[in-house]
């Protein structure tokens, strides 16, 4: 039954990994604006259609890294 220590260790580790992920997501500002991304994700299609129309250079949108 000492396998329970292993199981507990695994479950606690997994839980803590998720907790760390949460802390990092807060730190990166994910929870600062909870509205705009919901609108932004609907735009991708228009962007693609738009790019094919215009002959401008394809500037890739990257996430800002200068936090």
């Amino acid at each position: 039954m000492s396998v329970i220590y292993v199981l507990l260790a695994i479950s606690v580790t997994v839980a803590i990994i998720f907790f760390i992920a949460f802390v990092f997501s807060v730190k990166s500002g994910q929870y600062d604006d909870t509205y705009t991304p919901s609108v932004r994700m609907l735009f991708e299609d228009e962007l693609v259609k738009d790019k094919s129309n215009s002959n401008k250079k394809d500037i890739k949108q990257t996430k800002s890294t200068n936090q």
């Binding site: 604006d33 909870t34 509205y35 609108v39 932004r40 990257t62 800002s64």
Partner: peptide, 8 residues
Amino acid sequence: SVSQVDFP
């Protein structure tokens, strides 16, 4: 290069 809106 990048512009990002915070709507709220």
